[in-house]
Design a protein around this nucleic acid. Structure first.
Lengths: 130, 130
DNA sequence: ATGCTCGTACGATACCCATCGTAGTACGGC
DNA sequence: GCCGTACTACGATGGGTATCGTACGAGCAT
């Protein structure tokens, strides 16, 4: 009983508590934008380990937490894994069109500059290799 | 001739050099978002001193520089003053709809939470008082 | 229970950034 | 030339943050 049985439930801001500035800040990081882009493409809950990011696991946890605390994603435990999903309904209700324009802008920029993360299906996901 | 006659011209990123992440980062600060909102409402060049911000002049200079270096605004000297204007055409060309959705989201949030900067025409501008 | 995998927590570090005060430069008016 | 206004540059500072390594907790399979 070193830990008093944590609720194993993560804290999320309610819809009304989501603020624009933290959302924009969360999206202003390249790694997090990459995560969000792939999550939008998947449209289903993805485990953290699904993403192959150029950072360690510790840093990944940090980025996911920033996204969650800003209200961009929702994280739920599913057994040993953790499912991540975009909070599309909440974001669209609060800031109509914002998520879509940012995603479109990100893909347009990736196409222009030939980012490695241009195609979310290649090189970014683990593609069930493990 | 302590200084070798500076060009008195400020460095701006070219349209193709504008990146999404710095733009989002520039917009993720409350003070800068406030500046951008008023600039969008004015649609004409505004001097720095036009804005009444809750920070000192030094900090204002910093914020304007962040906006300029991100490619969000254009700054040109006009005599002793400096005119600031949104780079609407460039932003719309690169990231269609992004600026508008962010501005709309900012105003929606201001209306919801009753921000003091809700009405850009009241309390935010100097209204030619000086 | 043992071990494996997934993810977290904590500490450390280095960097960025928002803020300020002070001093200084550029331009325009007297 | 001199002064005032507008803005900048520089230095300092405190807080945030992106990063890592290591150690640990939770769940699943055997």
């Amino acid at each position: 009983m070193t830990t008093p049985a944590r609720p194993r439930r993560l804290a999320h801001p309610a819809r009304e508590e989501i603020r624009l500035e933290p959302v924009l800040h969360a999206l202003s990081d390249a790694v997090r934008l990459r995560i969000v882009r792939e999550m939008a493409a998947a449209e289903t809950g993805l485990s953290c380990s699904h993403f192959v990011l150029p950072v360690t696991k510790s840093t990944s946890t940090h980025h996911f937490r920033v996204l969650r605390e800003a209200g961009v994603i929702r994280q739920d435990y599913r057994g040993t894994a953790k499912l991540n999903a975009l909070r599309r309904a909440d974001l669209d209700a609060l800031f109509p069109g914002l998520l879509d324009t940012v995603l479109t802008a990100a893909e347009a920029q990736a196409a222009r500059h030939g980012d490695p993360a241009r195609d979310p299906a290649a090189g970014l996901t683990a593609t069930a290799s493990g």
